[in-house]
Design a protein around this nucleic acid. Structure first.
Length: 221
DNA sequence: TTCCGGGGAA
DNA sequence: TTCCCTGGAA
């Protein structure tokens, strides 16, 4: 699937951001939110100097909430971002480099313990902001793999279902050979989002989908 | 299961 | 107007 998608869509250049911290902020803001809204919020933050660790720390909660309003769920995302900074200050010397030096599994559990961070956000931060080689799963991947009969239908929203998708991705790519290559997981998730937006939304649109050849026979007409 | 939510698209 | 978006938590 990765190869078909790569051939159809080309390099995705993820994650679009100037700094690692901007990736972290974007990962929070994009939760169940269209990227266009995230870009508005990021522009607001940039203008207010809030796209650096020191800058975001200096913003009071009400101001932060107002700045990220365009990307929705601001009453939850604003305190969640503050909690990330608080963790960084208290446990990692306020440094993303120190955070990134933490062992992957330990780091993942620490991120998951944060308010407003579930599996997808934790893995997006690990992969795209901190450079750890972990797969990122999401609702698109769940739909794609379910519709292509690569998984049995999973409970939609719980950790078990998410972990099953991550595990499926790991096995598909071959964990050992790729342990030192975040690049493939990076590209695959980006491609998943691309094909998901075009063809595998709530309503499946399989015509001209790069993955159409892999559809189960009963779905082809 | 339901809520959080603005904003773009249908 | 309604639907949906690179989810998470009560």
């Amino acid at each position: 699937m990765h190869d078909w998608l790569a051939k159809a869509y080309g390099p995705q250049h993820w994650w679009p951001a100037e700094t690692a911290f901007e990736v972290v902020v974007g990962a929070y803001l994009t939760q169940n939110t269209a990227w266009a809204g995230v870009e508005r919020s990021l522009a607001n933050l940039r203008r207010a100097g809030g796209l650096s660790i020191d800058g975001l720390r200096a913003l009071d909660l009400d101001k932060l909430r107002e700045l990220i309003r365009p990307s929705g769920f601001y009453s939850r995302k604003a305190p969640a971002l503050k909690a990330f900074i608080a963790m960084l200050d208290a446990e990692f010397q306020g440094s993303l480099d120190v955070l990134a030096a933490t062992q992957t599994e330990v780091l993942r559990e620490r991120l998951l313990a944060l308010p407003g961070v579930g599996g997808e956000t934790a893995d997006a931060i690990l992969l795209y902001a901190l450079g750890h080689a972990v797969p990122v799963a999401d609702e698109y991947l769940r739909r794609i793999t379910e519709r292509h009969r690569l998984i049995t239908p999973l409970p939609r929203k719980n950790r078990k279902g998410y972990e099953a998708l991550v595990q499926l991705t790991r096995e598909a790519f071959g964990m050992d050979a790729l342990a030192d290559r975040p690049r493939l997981f990076n590209e695959f998730h980006a491609l998943t989002v691309a094909v998901g937006k075009k063809h595998c939304s709530v309503i499946a649109d399989c015509e001209n989908c790069p993955l159409a050849a892999d559809l189960p026979i009963e779905c082809q007409d």
